[in-house]
Design a protein around this nucleic acid. Structure first.
Lengths: 347, 347
DNA sequence: TTGTATGCGTTATCAT
DNA sequence: ATGATAACGCATACAA
């Protein structure tokens, strides 16, 4: 009768339960639980016996079952596109920080599609995750599901309605301009056309660029701006970059809204026969692993990715654990990293 | 007394349960469950009422609780380094395929560290995941935990003891050699020094290279080989590549063991003043997103990543669901994609 | 200090 | 066709 386990053929059926451990150690399952919870009220010799039984049976508490009585130690991470190096790196760091705190990470990729985002978030909510960390701005459909019962933290993005931890974008591009001005550049451009699905990031970075230019007493020509344009197809970026870089009165330096764009620009410059940094200086933003490579060695505004990952995890856990309704948002300082794509203007 | 819920302050406390839905619809929780499970034995009007209650309360079944009675629809994905574009892309595709089948993905990054791998795998096992998908070869410590009760599938890697789904590495590099030979190259080199933590991948790719060379009646000079070397520090790759590319009797074409290495080689060639493909042809392996970029446009051996992701998920689910002890491994065909880093030799 | 009893949210079994 | 009830594995309040 009571051999229900042996009858089934599914996997995990053989996994020992807390009762198996209790029997093996000759104690009650409560005692086993107490030992595992680190309760001090357990006599040492009994503790030993229990631990021995745990080791011998290779017992691992059923996290799902445990999560019905305790805060589940699982975080949901929502990311638009893992193929984006910045997001992938950040996701890895988030998982790492979560693991340090003994939290697991449930991954959900949305591909930037609103409908898929809603489905993934719903799934995450079904898992009763302790908190959600968004690495991409919550799209319309997904937001609706977030009613405040599950804490949400935005990592490296800023959007209204949620606490976030992100770099000071405006300050970053401002410092990029300062760097270029310090090198003697006056005709400085700004490129962000590829960032049209992340306007929340594009805007402050452009704002910082403008502030920097104004602060230096410089004006920026309209033809030196390449910003998101609804009418343009997404596929002709490279062509637009070539045209941009090929114009007669082209800038001597360009601030790109992120590293990926800076790399595209680098390629477009090469394609047009320009040498970087001699004919054109380029500054990126993010400091993805690629930018550190020898072959690229991109001057860029670094985001403190470790601090962002750590902070996002801390914020999410704090919001889930404590009764803090809305944790404070955090703005972190960027850091300009000068490599080999910026120099004095040729003229 | 029975207002246990209101007393606590943790999150999720307000999440409606199946009992709430039952009350709201005026039926028993069994009926609600039956409706949600798609049982046909429920009268249509009742079904409607239940669904209405579900929608109104925004009820979402507690997946953790469900997993105590059913196969948990969660897959564990173990990846060494998400900062590696190939792994990140593959992980994203795996998550996608899993989501299509209504499975969730628990992410674990090991950083290639054996000890961390063991801890992460243990955590995944604690979650009672239906199956594990490794995107990196299981390191020593992690293997020990895998006793066969939880199905394991290796994606894009081959290792003994586990079913895998991967590309035919040898055939890939063989085709790369054939392509170069067809262009008229005779002095062809092979570079894989950066792949020393993935010997299971390096070896068959080198084997295919050798086979291709032999098949074409060509010999390969020892100085044209740059393979893993325990004694070399990991940091001087680029320097080694420059030396390799700068040697007098350098090859006219090189097969790189993966795209990342091909890109480094590209940089080293540029640094040495060589033009690609005029002075040097380069073939990569993997076809990561980066390789498709205009600026790089790398000729490469493509892995069928979609098929690998789909197959890995299918295999894992099948192994968990059916009572197939060890599913069949699958070897997929690579596809050479000719772009702009290969051409006829200059001489 | 240890054991007993109860509840968590769900599915599954069995009456009705 | 529907509902009462017993698991599932664990933590916890409480009794011993």
């Amino acid at each position: 009768m009571n051999r229900t386990r042996a009858a089934s053929g599914r996997s995990h059926e053989g996994a020992p339960t807390i009762i198996d451990v209790a029997r093996h150690a000759g104690v009650s399952k409560s005692t086993v639980s107490n030992v595992l919870q680190g309760k001090t009220s357990v006599a040492e010799p009994i503790r030993q016996k229990v631990m021995a039984a745990v080791a011998e049976l290779d017992y691992r508490p059923h996290i799902g079952a445990r999560s019905m009585r305790q805060q589940p130690r699982v975080l949901g991470v929502v990311v638009g596109d893992l193929a984006n190096p910045f997001h992938a790196e950040l996701a890895a760091k988030v998982e790492n920080e979560a693991a340090k705190r003994d939290y697991s990470v449930l991954l959900a990729t949305t591909g930037g599609v609103g409908q898929r985002e809603a489905a993934r978030v719903s799934s995450l909510l079904g898992h009763r995750v302790a908190g959600l960390i968004f690495l991409s701005a919550p799209h319309g459909n997904g937001r609706l599901l977030l009613d405040g019962s599950t804490p949400v933290v935005l990592a490296s993005i800023v959007a209204p309605g949620f606490p976030w931890i992100a770099v000071d974008d405006a300050r970053g591009t401002r410092e990029a301009v300062d760097h270029l001005v310090g090198l003697g550049h006056a005709r400085i451009g700004f490129v962000s056309a590829m960032l049209d699905d992340e306007l929340a990031t594009e805007r402050p970075r452009f704002k910082g660029f403008s502030q920097g230019m104004r602060g230096a007493g410089l004006t920026v020509a309209g033809s030196h701006l390449l910003r998101p344009d609804r009418r343009a197809a997404r596929t002709d970026w490279f062509e637009r970059l070539r045209v941009y870089i090929g114009q007669r009165e082209r800038p001597t330096a360009v601030v790109a809204a992120n590293d990926l764009m800076a790399l595209e620009l680098l390629a477009a410059a090469e394609a047009e026969g320009l040498r970087v940094p001699h004919d054109l200086s380029i500054v990126g933003f993010d400091n993805i692993a690629l930018a550190r490579w020898e072959r690229v060695s991109l001057t860029t505004v670094a985001q403190p990715m470790d601090a962002i990952a750590r902070g996002a995890v801390d914020l999410a856990i704090a919001a889930a654990t404590d009764d803090v309704p809305v944790p404070q948002s955090v703005r972190l300082d960027p850091q300009l990293i000068v490599r080999r794509t910026t120099a004095h203007p040729a003229s």
